[in-house]
Structures are given as C-alpha cells and as structure tokens.
Design a protein around this nucleic acid. Structure first.
Lengths: 157, 157
DNA sequence: GCCATCCTACTCGGATATCGTATGTCCGAGTTGGTCGGG
DNA sequence: CCCGACCAACTCGGACATACGATATCCGAGTAGGATGGC
C-alpha cells in the first residue's frame, strides 16, 4: 500500500496556491522550480486535480493553475483521491464463494465480515483526511510565509 | 494506494486456521484448494506471516500452518502489515527543503504539517485495524461454520 | 509380538520468470499578451 | 496619439518510453510418518 510520490507534490502545490492572492496563478514550471521536481511529470499529476474540480487551469502567457474553490472548501481527501483515485485499497473478490469451501449464495447476502472491517478502516482514514482543509493548514504556518511564497513562487509579492 | 490481492487470501486463511482445533494444521495446498487460489503464490505470501510470528509452520507429512498465538491476540493489523509491510503509504521526502522555495533548516525542526496530517490519517487506519482480532471475527460467523471449515479444509472434522 | 532402521512422500523455503502500473519524458493544440503598422 | 490586426511566446493537455514491484511459477532442503526387516 503506497501512495504515489506525486501525492506529496500536489499537496504542497495546493498549499502554495492557497497562499496566492485570489485570482493569481502559478504555472507548472514555476511550481516545479519551487520544489525542484520534474516539471513535465508534475504537470501530468496536476491534470487530475483539474478534472476533479480542485484546481482550475488557464493557458497562454500569465496562465497557470489556481484553486478552483475557496481554501476552506478543499480537503486533503479531495486532493489525495484526485491524484490516487477513489478505489479502496482492499478489494473484496469474494473468494468465500470460490473453491472447495465456497459458501452457498444464500449465506452471502450480507457483506463479507472481513471486507466490512477493512472498509471500516478505510472509512476511518477518509474521515481523518476529510476533516482537514487547506484553510486549516494555512492557519498553522507562520505569518510571513504567504508573502515569501508569493515572492519566490511567482516573483510578484 | 492498493493492497496486494494476497491480503484477502491471508486474511481468509487466518480466519480459517482460527477455526481449527488447537494444534491442528492446514497445508498451503489445502488452503489453496479451499479458496481456489494459486498454491505456490499463496505459500509465498504466507511466509511473511510466519516471519512476523503470526503463523507457525511445520514441515513434513501432516505438517502445514497454524496460528502461532491465540486468536484473541492476533489483530487484523498484524496480518495486514505482515503481508504488506509497515511502511506508511505517504512518505515525506521533505520537498519543503528543496528547490527555490526551500525553507531554512531552523524552520523545519517541527515535522512538516502536511506529513503530520497524513500520518494522523494513517494512525487512524491502523487503530481501526488493531481493534479487530480474529476472535472478534469468529464471534460473527454462524454456529455451524467451524465444523464445516474443518471438514472441507482438512477433511477431519 | 516388539523395536530399531530405512525409506518414501509430503512439507515449507527461497530462487527464478512474467506482467502491470507508477514514473519519467516528449511534442502538439490553443490562448493570451505584446508589438507593429495604419489612421 | 489611438486603434486594430498580426505575431510570437508561453500555457496546458495528451501521447509515448522506461523502471520497479506485484504476480505467478518452479525446484531444492528438510522432516515426520509409515513400512520393513530383524530380534
């Protein structure tokens, strides 16, 4: 069970974008230089964020990415599931209905107890991530951080 | 973020082994036939369970696998982390200290806030799994299930 | 009939191929801002 | 001096290679139970 390396990238990118002035954008190249990560691959990983409605992208000069919603309405879960997908890590393939020990279908109306426990753990994980918004995170950083981010990221700040 | 398919196998195998009489064993071949999964690959996945001290293996005729501890002392977390490893899914590579926006080391004494949130979610997941033991699971299955498992799995029951 | 020995069959354990996905890179379509010429 | 059209550079978006780990398989070392021969 491993999240893509790019998960860290997009979380930090979203945090940085949240520190920009409303309407301002940062390009994939600027973000890549800010974190020293491959520019092309970062752009590729930001795309699903746009499709998920977390970020908005504008092309052309002075274009780039910005938050599509207020920072208070974007949770960690939104970002993580956008880049990694929403499929739960444990997939029940109903092996209890296969092989020599296959249970009759009438005993499988209820969900597999094992799968239920795994689903509960996954739900706990999702709940924990959904409880944190980008706005919550910004409240934890120093006062001087946003100005610094704007200056080093976009050059205007 | 995806758990190996074998996670389902070993969870069901452990549950079945917990239904055997104390000291009784089931071979990898018997378990594979019981669930209709590849026998060699299942044996490979049961090995880390033995190394983790969850299962015990005996060789030779009438040998096989059995629980190394009472079912009440084996949690889902023990099994899942044995087969999948204990590394957390989100790995903080400290990109906040890299690139144009690198923070000075003195501002990085505290853990990265983003990594802290991800670690908290992972801790929540682990806590949820650690709260379920094999004994808990056995209390949810029908009365007639253990006898049936013993009969179809080992032929003696 | 009992026992020690040998043997056979069965077990796990690790080493070895194959496949799929994450990772990394590249080029093309589209758009905006600036520039240049004309009025 | 003001305005419109053109151009060029910059942006994202999707298509194309590569590396690593999960998946699947096989063969060898070791052991316990049973058969066998002797006492």
């Amino acid at each position: 069970m491993k999240l893509p390396v790019s998960t860290e990238w997009v979380l930090h990118c979203a945090t940085s974008l949240a520190q920009l002035e409303p309407g301002a954008t940062a390009s994939a190249g600027q973000l890549a230089g800010y974190f020293d990560v491959p520019q092309a691959y970062l752009a590729k990983q930001l795309q699903p964020l746009v499709k998920a409605g977390v970020l908005a992208a504008t092309t052309g000069p002075r274009g780039g990415f910005r938050l599509a919603r207020p920072a208070a309405d974007i949770t960690f879960l939104d970002i993580v599931e956008a880049v990694d997908g929403t499929a739960p890590p444990y997939e029940c393939r109903e092996i209890r209905q296969q092989g020599r020990g296959a249970l009759p279908a009438e005993d499988c109306r209820a969900a597999c107890p094992i799968a239920a426990k795994m689903a509960a753990a996954h739900a706990s994980w999702r709940t924990s991530l959904a409880a944190v918004t980008l706005a919550d995170l910004l409240s934890e950083i120093p006062e001087w951080a946003p100005e610094r981010t704007r200056r080093l990221l976009t050059g205007t700040g």
